[in-house]
Structures are given as structure tokens and as C-alpha cells.
């Protein structure tokens, strides 16, 4: 199949992301990358757990506020669903609807990031809890900040796809690009599930 060929909803293949060699390579290569990212985040989680509440003047219990984290969690979880919607429309060859749902995903992700920036600002100014304050604060900012950097990168990536392909329409050339970007976005949500559970909720329990 030709990547640049023009398609109609009738001729658009099932699994458009895996129709070209480039698409199949992207698919397998991106999953390998996500396997590596799992190990990266595991090392940050391990460091955080080992240094949790070590050498600090504020503990997790005093620092974290559950309502803010709950709102952030809902935003990111919903953005995961909207990117599922986008891929659903990609499979049905509805380019405009796919672009729309990816745009909503970006909006939700940007709101999440804004709240995270507010959260960090709040910790630094209200609790004097900076990156170099303690072993604990360093581990905390490295873990949650690396996740935040992934959110920022994902926002830039999806925005670039939306703008670059706005006039191109959907093809077998750009379908794999959208598909792996949505995998990346889901992976960000997977990591956040562990962050809100291990860092914030367990920080309030024990």
C-alpha cells in the first residue's frame, strides 16, 4: 500500500497504523520504548520510596492536599478517554472528529499541567519545599517532575501533529504518527495512576 494514496471511508483499511512497513516499525519500536520508560520510572519510584520523608522538615502528610490531586487525576483520566475517542474516529476515517478529540485531549492535558505548576509553586512558597531542600524533596520533584515533563512533551507532540496535518487529511503516512502519540498519552496516564496512588494517597496513609 502506498502511504500517500488518497482514501475514502470505504477503502480505508482496518488497522491503518500497521499498513505500511514504516507504520509497523513505529508500532513495535514505540512499544519497546514504552518498556524502557517503565524501567526509567521504576528507578525514580524506587528512589522516591527509599527517600520518602528522609531529612525533611515537612512530611508527605503535611504537604499533600487530596482535592487538588483528585482534580488532576480526573483531568488526566478523562484525557485518556478523549484520545481513545480520537483513535476510534481515525479507524472510521473521520479526520475532523479525530482532530477535535485530540484537541480536547491537549486542552485537558494543559489544564493538568497548569495545576501541577501551581502545586509545585505552592510547595516552594508556602512550605519552603524546594528541589534542594532535602533528599525527600529532590526525589519527589524528580519523580513527579519527570512525569510532568512527559505531559509537556506529549502536549507539544500532539499539538504539532494536529497543526502539521490540518490540511493534509488522514493517510497511511500520518495514521501511525497519531496512533503512537495516543499510546504515549495513555502511558503517561498509566504512570500517573501509580503516582497518585504511591506518592499522594500512600503519603496520606502512613
Amino acid at each position: 500500500m502506498m502511504a500517500e494514496e488518497k482514501y475514502t471511508p470505504q477503502t480505508w483499511p482496518a488497522d491503518p497504523e500497521k499498513q505500511t512497513l514504516e507504520g509497523r516499525n513505529k508500532f513495535i519500536g514505540f512499544w519497546l520504548f514504552l518498556g524502557g520508560e517503565t524501567v526509567l520510572f521504576a528507578s525514580l519510584f524506587a528512589t522516591y520510596l527509599a527517600l520518602k520523608n528522609k531529612g525533611t522538615h515537612v512530611t508527605t502528610n503535611e504537604l499533600f492536599s487530596l482535592p487538588l490531586v483528585f482534580v488532576m487525576t480526573m483531568l488526566l483520566l478523562t484525557s485518556s478517554l478523549t484520545s481513545v475517542y480520537a483513535i476510534y474516529h481515525m479507524k472510521n476515517f473521520h479526520f475532523k472528529k479525530m482532530q477535535f478529540w485530540f484537541f480536547i485531549t491537549v486542552l485537558l492535558g494543559a489544564t493538568f499541567l497548569a495545576l501541577e505548576i501551581y502545586e509545585f509553586y505552592h510547595y516552594v512558597h508556602e512550605f519552603d519545599f524546594g528541589f534542594t531542600s532535602s533528599a525527600f524533596s529532590g526525589a519527589y520533584y524528580t519523580l513527579v517532575g519527570t512525569h510532568g515533563a512527559h505531559v509537556l512533551f506529549g502536549l507539544g507532540w500532539i499539538t504539532a501533529l494536529i497543526i502539521r496535518n490540518a490540511k493534509r487529511g488522514l493517510s497511511l503516512y500520518n495514521a501511525p504518527k497519531y496512533y503512537v502519540a495516543s499510546l504515549y498519552w495513555h502511558f503517561i496516564d498509566v504512570v500517573w495512576v501509580f503516582i497518585f496512588t504511591v506518592v499522594y494517597l500512600l503519603g496520606k496513609v502512613g
Binding site: 518498556g35 520508560e37 517503565t38 524501567v39 519510584f45 524506587a46
Partner: peptide, 14 residues
């Protein structure tokens, strides 16, 4: 296979 390998390494690290 990639993901479960990652999870295995993650488990050992933690």
C-alpha cells in the same frame, strides 16, 4: 513481551 520485561525490571528495582 517488552512491557512485561519492563515490569519485571521495575519490580526488581523497587
Amino acid at each position: 513481551f517488552f512491557m512485561y520485561s519492563g515490569v519485571f525490571a521495575a519490580f526488581l528495582t523497587i
